[in-house]
Design a protein around this nucleic acid. Structure first.
Lengths: 143, 143
DNA sequence: CTACGTGCAAATGGTTTGCACATAC
DNA sequence: GTATGTGCAAACCATTTGCACGTAG
Protein backbone atom coordinates (compact mmCIF):
# COMPACT_ATOMS: atom_id res chain seq x y z
CA UNK A 1 0.00 0.00 0.00
CA UNK A 2 1.44 3.35 -1.01
CA UNK A 3 1.40 6.60 0.90
CA UNK A 4 -1.61 8.17 -0.73
CA UNK A 5 -3.60 4.99 -0.13
CA UNK A 6 -2.72 5.17 3.53
CA UNK A 7 -3.92 8.76 3.78
CA UNK A 8 -7.12 7.93 1.98
CA UNK A 9 -7.76 4.79 3.98
CA UNK A 10 -7.31 6.76 7.19
CA UNK A 11 -9.88 9.25 6.05
CA UNK A 12 -12.28 6.59 4.81
CA UNK A 13 -12.11 4.66 8.04
CA UNK A 14 -12.36 7.71 10.24
CA UNK A 15 -15.71 8.38 8.58
CA UNK A 16 -16.92 4.78 8.75
CA UNK A 17 -16.83 4.43 4.98
CA UNK A 18 -15.61 1.55 2.87
CA UNK A 19 -12.44 1.11 0.87
CA UNK A 20 -13.97 -0.32 -2.29
CA UNK A 21 -12.08 -1.49 -5.39
CA UNK A 22 -13.60 1.44 -7.30
CA UNK A 23 -12.23 3.98 -4.83
CA UNK A 24 -8.86 2.28 -4.84
CA UNK A 25 -8.74 2.26 -8.64
CA UNK A 26 -9.64 5.93 -8.90
CA UNK A 27 -7.16 6.91 -6.21
CA UNK A 28 -4.33 5.06 -7.88
CA UNK A 29 -5.17 6.31 -11.31
CA UNK A 30 -5.20 9.87 -10.05
CA UNK A 31 -1.87 9.55 -8.28
CA UNK A 32 -0.11 7.57 -10.98
CA UNK A 33 -0.42 10.40 -13.38
CA UNK A 34 -0.40 14.01 -14.42
CA UNK A 35 -1.00 17.20 -12.55
CA UNK A 36 -4.28 18.85 -13.49
CA UNK A 37 -7.18 16.84 -14.77
CA UNK A 38 -10.93 16.98 -15.16
CA UNK A 39 -13.54 14.43 -14.12
CA UNK A 40 -14.42 13.52 -17.69
CA UNK A 41 -10.76 13.13 -18.60
CA UNK A 42 -10.24 10.77 -15.69
CA UNK A 43 -13.21 8.69 -16.77
CA UNK A 44 -11.96 8.35 -20.34
CA UNK A 45 -8.43 7.68 -19.15
CA UNK A 46 -9.57 4.91 -16.86
CA UNK A 47 -11.65 3.34 -19.61
CA UNK A 48 -8.53 3.18 -21.75
CA UNK A 49 -6.74 1.26 -19.03
CA UNK A 50 -9.77 -1.01 -18.68
CA UNK A 51 -10.65 0.34 -15.25
CA UNK A 52 -14.37 0.91 -15.69
CA UNK A 53 -16.05 3.00 -13.06
CA UNK A 54 -19.25 4.93 -13.55
CA UNK A 55 -19.28 8.68 -13.91
CA UNK A 56 -21.28 8.93 -10.70
CA UNK A 57 -18.63 7.06 -8.76
CA UNK A 58 -15.91 9.24 -10.25
CA UNK A 59 -17.67 12.35 -9.00
CA UNK A 60 -18.47 10.85 -5.62
CA UNK A 61 -14.89 9.69 -5.14
CA UNK A 62 -13.33 12.94 -6.28
CA UNK A 63 -15.38 14.69 -3.60
CA UNK A 64 -13.99 12.31 -1.01
CA UNK A 65 -10.44 12.82 -2.23
CA UNK A 66 -10.89 16.55 -1.86
CA UNK A 67 -12.34 16.18 1.63
CA UNK A 68 -9.49 13.90 2.64
CA UNK A 69 -7.04 16.58 1.62
CA UNK A 70 -5.39 14.55 -1.14
CA UNK A 71 -6.77 16.65 -3.97
CA UNK A 72 -7.77 20.22 -4.48
CA UNK A 73 -10.40 21.61 -6.82
CA UNK A 74 -9.18 24.43 -9.02
CA UNK A 75 -11.38 26.55 -11.19
CA UNK A 76 -9.85 28.26 -14.18
CA UNK A 77 -12.87 30.16 -15.39
CA UNK A 78 -14.42 27.39 -17.41
CA UNK A 79 -17.64 25.69 -16.45
CA UNK A 80 -16.06 22.44 -15.32
CA UNK A 81 -13.76 21.86 -12.38
CA UNK A 82 -10.13 20.83 -12.52
CA UNK A 83 -8.38 18.87 -9.85
CA UNK A 84 -4.77 18.82 -8.78
CA UNK A 85 -2.65 16.88 -6.33
CA UNK A 86 -2.14 18.33 -2.90
CA UNK A 87 -0.50 15.26 -1.43
CA UNK A 88 3.22 15.35 -2.15
CA UNK A 89 3.14 18.76 -3.77
CA UNK A 90 4.17 22.17 -2.55
CA UNK A 91 1.39 24.73 -2.52
CA UNK A 92 1.48 26.81 -5.66
CA UNK A 93 -0.44 29.37 -7.67
CA UNK A 94 -1.38 29.51 -11.35
CA UNK A 95 -0.79 31.55 -14.46
CA UNK A 96 -3.61 30.78 -16.88
CA UNK A 97 -3.19 31.52 -20.58
CA UNK A 98 -6.53 32.79 -21.84
CA UNK A 99 -5.63 31.89 -25.40
CA UNK A 100 -4.21 28.37 -25.37
CA UNK A 101 -5.28 27.35 -21.88
CA UNK A 102 -1.79 26.50 -20.73
CA UNK A 103 -1.29 26.50 -16.96
CA UNK A 104 2.01 27.60 -15.49
CA UNK A 105 2.58 26.97 -11.80
CA UNK A 106 4.57 29.19 -9.50
CA UNK A 107 4.99 29.52 -5.81
CA UNK A 108 6.22 32.28 -3.60
CA UNK A 109 6.36 32.29 0.14
CA UNK A 110 5.58 35.99 0.22
CA UNK A 111 2.00 35.22 -0.65
CA UNK A 112 1.58 33.22 2.54
CA UNK A 113 3.02 36.07 4.63
CA UNK A 114 0.83 38.48 2.85
CA UNK A 115 -2.22 36.33 3.52
CA UNK A 116 -1.42 36.34 7.23
CA UNK A 117 -1.23 40.13 7.28
CA UNK A 118 -4.49 40.61 5.44
CA UNK A 119 -6.24 38.14 7.71
CA UNK A 120 -4.94 39.85 10.82
CA UNK A 121 -6.18 43.21 9.57
CA UNK A 122 -9.60 41.78 8.77
CA UNK A 123 -9.96 39.45 11.74
CA UNK A 124 -10.26 36.56 9.32
CA UNK A 125 -9.16 32.95 9.77
CA UNK A 126 -7.76 31.69 6.48
CA UNK A 127 -8.26 28.10 5.39
CA UNK A 128 -6.95 28.38 1.88
CA UNK A 129 -6.34 30.86 -0.87
CA UNK A 130 -6.25 31.08 -4.58
CA UNK A 131 -4.09 33.41 -6.62
CA UNK A 132 -4.46 33.25 -10.37
CA UNK A 133 -3.09 35.50 -13.03
CA UNK A 134 -4.93 35.39 -16.33
CA UNK A 135 -3.17 36.55 -19.48
CA UNK A 136 -1.04 35.39 -22.37
CA UNK A 137 1.80 32.93 -22.21
CA UNK A 138 5.04 33.40 -24.12
CA UNK A 139 3.72 31.55 -27.17
CA UNK A 140 0.42 33.41 -27.28
CA UNK A 141 1.71 36.91 -26.61
CA UNK A 142 -1.07 39.19 -27.80
CA UNK A 143 -0.72 40.62 -31.34
CA UNK B 1 -26.94 60.38 -19.55
CA UNK B 2 -24.69 59.25 -16.73
CA UNK B 3 -21.08 58.18 -16.91
CA UNK B 4 -21.61 54.45 -17.03
CA UNK B 5 -24.14 54.90 -19.82
CA UNK B 6 -21.55 56.83 -21.79
CA UNK B 7 -18.98 54.09 -21.39
CA UNK B 8 -21.48 51.45 -22.41
CA UNK B 9 -22.79 53.45 -25.34
CA UNK B 10 -19.23 53.91 -26.59
CA UNK B 11 -18.68 50.20 -26.46
CA UNK B 12 -22.03 49.38 -28.05
CA UNK B 13 -21.47 51.78 -30.92
CA UNK B 14 -17.88 50.76 -31.49
CA UNK B 15 -19.21 47.26 -32.16
CA UNK B 16 -22.10 48.36 -34.35
CA UNK B 17 -24.65 47.21 -31.78
CA UNK B 18 -27.82 48.90 -30.60
CA UNK B 19 -28.59 50.77 -27.43
CA UNK B 20 -31.97 49.19 -26.66
CA UNK B 21 -34.27 50.07 -23.76
CA UNK B 22 -33.60 46.63 -22.28
CA UNK B 23 -29.85 47.21 -22.23
CA UNK B 24 -30.31 50.66 -20.78
CA UNK B 25 -32.61 49.35 -18.06
CA UNK B 26 -30.21 46.57 -17.09
CA UNK B 27 -27.23 48.90 -17.07
CA UNK B 28 -28.98 51.40 -14.85
CA UNK B 29 -30.33 48.80 -12.52
CA UNK B 30 -26.87 47.32 -12.11
CA UNK B 31 -25.23 50.65 -11.41
CA UNK B 32 -27.94 52.03 -9.17
CA UNK B 33 -27.33 49.36 -6.64
CA UNK B 34 -25.25 47.02 -4.60
CA UNK B 35 -21.82 45.54 -5.11
CA UNK B 36 -21.97 41.84 -5.84
CA UNK B 37 -24.96 40.26 -7.48
CA UNK B 38 -26.02 37.24 -9.47
CA UNK B 39 -27.93 37.05 -12.72
CA UNK B 40 -31.01 35.55 -11.10
CA UNK B 41 -30.97 38.16 -8.36
CA UNK B 42 -30.84 40.92 -10.93
CA UNK B 43 -33.79 39.42 -12.77
CA UNK B 44 -35.94 39.20 -9.63
CA UNK B 45 -34.86 42.66 -8.54
CA UNK B 46 -35.82 44.17 -11.86
CA UNK B 47 -39.18 42.42 -11.79
CA UNK B 48 -39.87 44.06 -8.44
CA UNK B 49 -39.21 47.48 -9.95
CA UNK B 50 -41.44 46.56 -12.88
CA UNK B 51 -38.57 46.45 -15.32
CA UNK B 52 -39.30 43.18 -17.07
CA UNK B 53 -36.53 41.76 -19.20
CA UNK B 54 -36.14 38.13 -20.12
CA UNK B 55 -33.55 35.96 -18.51
CA UNK B 56 -31.88 35.50 -21.89
CA UNK B 57 -31.47 39.23 -22.30
CA UNK B 58 -30.07 39.55 -18.79
CA UNK B 59 -27.38 37.01 -19.60
CA UNK B 60 -26.67 38.50 -23.00
CA UNK B 61 -26.38 41.99 -21.57
CA UNK B 62 -24.22 40.97 -18.63
CA UNK B 63 -21.78 39.48 -21.12
CA UNK B 64 -21.66 42.81 -22.94
CA UNK B 65 -21.16 44.72 -19.71
CA UNK B 66 -18.23 42.49 -18.89
CA UNK B 67 -16.73 42.94 -22.35
CA UNK B 68 -17.16 46.68 -22.15
CA UNK B 69 -15.15 46.68 -18.95
CA UNK B 70 -17.95 47.97 -16.73
CA UNK B 71 -18.42 44.73 -14.84
CA UNK B 72 -16.30 41.83 -13.79
CA UNK B 73 -17.30 38.24 -13.25
CA UNK B 74 -16.20 36.82 -9.92
CA UNK B 75 -16.45 33.19 -8.93
CA UNK B 76 -16.64 32.34 -5.28
CA UNK B 77 -16.69 28.59 -5.57
CA UNK B 78 -20.39 28.18 -6.12
CA UNK B 79 -21.83 27.01 -9.38
CA UNK B 80 -23.23 30.36 -10.46
CA UNK B 81 -21.31 33.49 -11.35
CA UNK B 82 -21.30 36.73 -9.39
CA UNK B 83 -20.73 40.12 -10.89
CA UNK B 84 -19.23 43.25 -9.47
CA UNK B 85 -18.69 46.83 -10.60
CA UNK B 86 -15.39 47.71 -12.15
CA UNK B 87 -16.41 51.14 -13.29
CA UNK B 88 -15.91 53.65 -10.49
CA UNK B 89 -14.29 51.12 -8.17
CA UNK B 90 -10.70 50.51 -7.25
CA UNK B 91 -9.43 47.04 -8.03
CA UNK B 92 -9.73 44.79 -5.01
CA UNK B 93 -9.49 41.22 -3.80
CA UNK B 94 -11.82 39.08 -1.71
CA UNK B 95 -11.99 37.29 1.59
CA UNK B 96 -14.76 34.70 1.32
CA UNK B 97 -16.31 33.26 4.47
CA UNK B 98 -16.96 29.57 3.81
CA UNK B 99 -19.54 29.41 6.55
CA UNK B 100 -21.82 32.43 6.11
CA UNK B 101 -20.76 33.44 2.61
CA UNK B 102 -19.84 36.97 3.59
CA UNK B 103 -17.46 38.73 1.21
CA UNK B 104 -14.91 41.18 2.57
CA UNK B 105 -13.02 43.28 0.07
CA UNK B 106 -9.46 44.46 0.44
CA UNK B 107 -6.88 45.98 -1.81
CA UNK B 108 -3.17 46.34 -1.65
CA UNK B 109 -0.79 47.63 -4.25
CA UNK B 110 1.77 44.96 -3.36
CA UNK B 111 -0.28 42.41 -5.24
CA UNK B 112 0.16 44.34 -8.44
CA UNK B 113 3.92 44.41 -7.86
CA UNK B 114 4.01 40.64 -7.25
CA UNK B 115 2.07 40.12 -10.39
CA UNK B 116 4.58 42.12 -12.41
CA UNK B 117 7.51 40.19 -10.95
CA UNK B 118 5.92 36.80 -11.44
CA UNK B 119 5.01 37.67 -15.00
CA UNK B 120 8.51 38.84 -15.80
CA UNK B 121 9.97 35.61 -14.45
CA UNK B 122 7.53 33.51 -16.45
CA UNK B 123 7.48 35.59 -19.63
CA UNK B 124 3.76 36.05 -19.17
CA UNK B 125 1.60 38.99 -20.15
CA UNK B 126 -1.02 39.57 -17.45
CA UNK B 127 -4.49 40.74 -18.29
CA UNK B 128 -6.08 40.31 -14.89
CA UNK B 129 -5.72 38.44 -11.67
CA UNK B 130 -7.77 37.01 -8.90
CA UNK B 131 -6.72 36.65 -5.31
CA UNK B 132 -9.18 35.09 -2.90
CA UNK B 133 -8.73 33.93 0.63
CA UNK B 134 -11.27 31.39 1.83
CA UNK B 135 -11.84 30.93 5.53
CA UNK B 136 -13.91 32.12 8.47
CA UNK B 137 -14.96 35.67 9.17
CA UNK B 138 -14.94 37.16 12.63
CA UNK B 139 -18.50 36.04 13.34
CA UNK B 140 -17.98 32.52 12.11
CA UNK B 141 -14.60 31.85 13.68
CA UNK B 142 -14.29 28.05 13.72
CA UNK B 143 -15.16 26.31 17.00
C1' DC C 1 -35.41 48.92 -44.59
C1' DT C 2 -32.51 45.58 -42.43
C1' DA C 3 -29.18 44.06 -39.25
C1' DC C 4 -29.42 43.46 -34.70
C1' DG C 5 -32.16 42.34 -30.42
C1' DT C 6 -35.84 40.20 -27.73
C1' DG C 7 -38.70 36.63 -25.49
C1' DC C 8 -39.83 32.15 -25.26
C1' DA C 9 -39.10 27.57 -24.77
C1' DA C 10 -36.07 24.04 -25.70
C1' DA C 11 -31.26 22.50 -25.60
C1' DT C 12 -26.83 22.11 -23.22
C1' DG C 13 -23.44 20.21 -20.25
C1' DG C 14 -21.26 19.45 -16.06
C1' DT C 15 -22.66 17.58 -11.93
C1' DT C 16 -25.98 15.33 -8.67
C1' DT C 17 -29.45 12.12 -7.24
C1' DG C 18 -33.10 8.20 -6.66
C1' DC C 19 -33.35 3.65 -6.80
C1' DA C 20 -32.59 -1.36 -7.09
C1' DC C 21 -29.02 -4.25 -6.67
C1' DA C 22 -24.27 -5.46 -4.87
C1' DT C 23 -20.63 -5.79 -1.32
C1' DA C 24 -17.13 -4.36 2.42
C1' DC C 25 -16.64 -5.06 6.99
C1' DG D 1 -26.38 -9.09 8.31
C1' DT D 2 -26.55 -4.31 7.40
C1' DA D 3 -24.92 0.07 6.37
C1' DT D 4 -22.52 1.82 2.48
C1' DG D 5 -21.45 1.82 -2.40
C1' DT D 6 -22.28 1.23 -7.30
C1' DG D 7 -24.28 1.86 -11.95
C1' DC D 8 -27.78 3.61 -14.55
C1' DA D 9 -30.74 6.86 -16.12
C1' DA D 10 -33.23 10.66 -14.89
C1' DA D 11 -33.05 15.12 -12.63
C1' DC D 12 -30.77 19.56 -11.78
C1' DC D 13 -29.70 24.15 -12.68
C1' DA D 14 -27.15 27.92 -14.42
C1' DT D 15 -26.44 29.37 -18.81
C1' DT D 16 -26.96 29.28 -23.91
C1' DT D 17 -29.32 28.97 -28.21
C1' DG D 18 -32.81 28.60 -32.30
C1' DC D 19 -36.41 30.82 -34.00
C1' DA D 20 -40.20 34.00 -35.20
C1' DC D 21 -41.24 38.39 -34.33
C1' DG D 22 -39.94 43.27 -33.03
C1' DT D 23 -37.25 47.62 -33.46
C1' DA D 24 -33.10 50.92 -33.32
C1' DG D 25 -30.54 53.44 -36.40
Amino acid sequence: MNESEKVFLDYIQSKGLKFTPERKAILNHVFESHGHFEAEELLVDMRKSNKRVSKATIYRTLALLVKSGLLREVIFGEKHAHYEHVYGHEHHEHLVCIKCGKIIEFSDERIEKYQDEICLENKFKAESHRFQIMGYCEDCEEE
